[in-house]
Design a protein around this nucleic acid. Structure first.
Lengths: 127, 127, 127, 127
DNA sequence: GTGGTCTAGACCACA
DNA sequence: GTGGTCTAGACCACA
């Protein structure tokens, strides 16, 4: 489980950590029951404040993605979807709305948006 | 020109307003030269502070989407290339960040995001 | 980093602040990566509302001059080309407007303006 | 005495009018004692609100540039400088500061600024 | 009437 | 601690 953060990024650090763990689960690199690094270890590795790692883990735990093993770290929880399928789609559509309108007013074409999205997937996608 | 805001949204109010105006332009509901509601009128309609509307309008004006007609409100500006290629790409990457981050949080896979984006393009129609 | 504002000036306070930070960068007093005073500290120093300082900083951030380090203040950003050539020219024309307008109001002729500008360049030194 | 205004300009209309009259005086097109168009005639010509023309004339009168002939329009007044030479120079230097720092942070070189200023003079200069 | 600036002060996200 | 968002409300420039 390797996590990378970039300091200058507009994404907050805790968000970068949470997203990368989510991504590792979606891509199969982390499976149900697998342990994630301890808060202190990861904070030391990334040279950041432990509070920041803790915040990422606590969000993931709140969302039912991780499960705390009181005193023995966190593991990937069995997947239970918090939102209904319809609700998840509705929320995704909202973000797609933002993406499309912003990208089009920036002067990008459909093809360019599509292309950039694919590139992004390739760069950070399942390895 | 009908604008709706939702209080519970993760998007800030001024971003929701700016987004919807961008969408109205992209979808053709607002054309170059069309007036947007006055700051005070829209604020009253949405029951929010005029400053919040003004913030949305000023962002759109800075980005070359709207144009102020001192003393007579704002209209949709003619298409300008305000940003450099590099900046446009940077901004596209930012919204892609939001999309991917939100989608992962919702438990969508890359393929599903891709698929939804394609569907959305098909809906708006080719070109 | 010392900033002064004058109440009687035709320039708005936030513009005076933004201007002086630009000047500090141009003159080499502020270099890439250097921190600017925090919003609250500068507001206290100048005895003005923090929102006014924040407005100056947010304009500079939008223009790619400053960079926000979430939770840790703002620093001078590395030189970026945020704007397209056309936009840069448009903005230069705006400040030339101000110069010419103000200079005419003060009763200077074109030749005198020109001469003063050359002198100014000589003072800052070649290249 | 021909005056041109552009609606989309960031310069307010009354400012454009006042500046063009100042410019005509500086360039010698208007001499002491020459009449300027009446408020109503100019407003009709430019298809703008008479208040706007009146505001320009009243600023010029306040500054001692024009002189009202109660009931018979305005003429160019004999030149008396409101500010001392030193004060005028000080104010001009402030605007030059703004111009130079904004232009340099926009990425323009000294030569380019110089060149743009000359072009501006040629375009609107004494004819 | 229009938008722009500024104050005073609350609350939130982030590290 | 840091900046970002929002409210409530004043005052100004402009047409």
């Amino acid at each position: 489980m390797q996590i990378h953060i970039s300091a200058g990024s507009p994404q907050s650090i805790y968000r970068q950590i949470a997203d990368q763990i989510r991504q590792a689960i979606v891509s199969g690199n982390l499976k149900v029951g697998d342990a994630v690094p301890s808060v202190r270890q990861l904070a030391k590795e990334l040279a950041i404040n432990p509070n920041t790692v803790a915040k990422a883990y606590s969000e993931l735990t709140r969302d039912g993605i991780l499960e705390g093993l009181s005193g023995r770290g966190c593991v990937v929880a069995s997947r239970k979807n918090v939102f209904s399928k319809a609700e998840r789609v509705r929320r995704l559509e909202l973000v797609l709305d933002s993406l499309v309108s912003e990208a089009l007013t920036l002067g990008f074409s459909y093809d360019e948006i599509q292309e950039r999205l694919v590139k992004r997937f390739e760069k950070i996608g399942p390895e």
